[in-house]
Design a protein around this nucleic acid. Structure first.
Lengths: 246, 246
DNA sequence: CGTGACATTGATGCCTTTCAAGTAGGGTGG
DNA sequence: CCACCCTACTTGAAAGGCATCAATGTCACG
């Protein structure tokens, strides 16, 4: 069950320089320290349920969660993969728009909704950071629309791996990945398929085929070695500059 | 060719209460009046080109534009349909992330990029409004991901018509559409297909089939009568409360 | 060592794409 | 004013990719 977690100091926080608090100075941080609390969720637990009250604004500190919507007949589409520093909720809204589920054990740093609304209103450094992050998320969502709308199953799987590897590298302060890289999948084939708009079977078959083609090597079912990141990115529909093909 | 257009007063502006300026008071508006300029684009003209410099932050005043990305082999996905009050550009970025093309004759109200960056920094009412709009756009982009990833061709077409009708109603200050409604398509079958992640042929076939089923009636190729908005929304995967199905 | 969740593999069918041809509407020039 | 033409749209036939249904395999855990 979801549990409160002991507070850690913002100074030691792993997402200190990437989350909504990234631009805050010492004084502002003190105000956040006073208002924040931590909570941990086990893999599979819901952090939010679409349509229901969302009492807190949360930032992922560690772990991984998916944001998704499920249609009446069971079809499900993940609309975002939440990694450390990503946020859940929005100012001025009391209801969750999507289901959010922990994919692995996850810790969040959170603020009561009304408290956070006040922080956004009174702390320009939070407001501007939130705007930047939201604009980034918007670009990411739009980029993903290209994947969902126009790419083949194989391209989708490659694009997913590429984006996962890129985000990992960015989060650890590394530059653009290159050459031989490893990637651990924080999610099941089902969660992956929901993200890609594919069935589990199609996803699995594409992975198998990509192994046969030497694009990826299985370390285990949830971890791959990628002999050539560039080759993978090429399949994902990108030129070798790291951007989408002109 | 793109042309400068005579300025109109913010007081008479059709998007005064919906655009980034919506929350501005009289004094702030005066600053905007001084900095703004208008420009008009004929249908088919580019407002922005992906990867190239974007010198201005623009708001659509009238008309309609599409934001899209084209892959090397010609596959194209529209990532956003821009209607009056929607904006193009983002603070602090000098390069366009997507292609933006006018679908019909379009007028924009715009600010030089650096001027706008200053306005966002110094005018809280603009910053907060921009945040709200960006969060709304993010939700819309995520909602559309469900359509692209999990819906059938027919559902996609229905969802598109529903969203178009809803946006029209919202822009003209009406509530939720109901019963017998008409809708004028501001775009070609091709642009529509790019938005839906379908081919022109599939889109056309679905429209034909929906006519046969009595869901829509052709006024002409670019305008339909919808005998029952509710019936259309149901096909688009929504319950009759206007929200996505639980 | 049995059990259950997760993943892979196989066979088949269907929806969408692809390739191709035909139709309709709008504008132009004779 | 009408024939012509260009573009946009529609319709048809066939192919292909992904989904569906079904079974088998694998690993962790009790």
């Amino acid at each position: 069950m979801a549990q409160s977690s002991p507070n850690i100091s913002c100074g030691n926080c792993p997402i200190r320089h990437n989350a909504v608090c990234a631009e805050c100075d010492k004084d502002e941080l003190a105000a956040l320290e006073a208002a924040k609390s931590y909570r941990s969720f086990a893999a599979g637990e819901p952090l939010a349920v679409s349509g229901e009250a969302l009492t807190h604004f949360s930032s992922i500190v560690s772990g991984c969660a998916s944001m998704s919507r499920t249609l009446e007949d069971g079809r499900r589409q993940t609309v975002g993969l939440l990694l450390p520093s990503d946020f859940i909720g929005r100012p001025g809204r009391a209801t969750a728009a999507y289901d959010v589920v922990a994919l692995s054990d996850t810790v969040v740093c959170r603020f009561e909704r009304r408290t956070f609304d006040g922080l956004v209103r009174d702390t320009p450094h939070i407001a501007t950071r939130l705007l930047t992050m939201t604009l980034d998320e918007l670009d990411a969502a739009r980029d993903w629309a290209v994947v969902l709308g126009r790419m083949t199953a194989r391209e989708k799987v490659a694009a997913f791996l590429v984006s996962l590897i890129r985000r990992r590298a960015a989060a650890t302060g590394q530059g653009e990945p290159a050459g031989d890289v490893a990637v651990a999948l924080p999610l099941s084939r089902e969660a992956m398929s929901d993200h890609l708009g594919l069935t589990i079977e199609t996803t699995s078959r594409q992975i198998t085929a990509m192994k046969k083609d030497g694009l990826i090597q299985a370390i285990n079912t949830r971890a791959f070695r990628i002999p050539s990141f560039e080759a993978l990115a090429l399949i994902a529909g990108e030129d070798d500059d790291g951007g989408p093909i002109a």
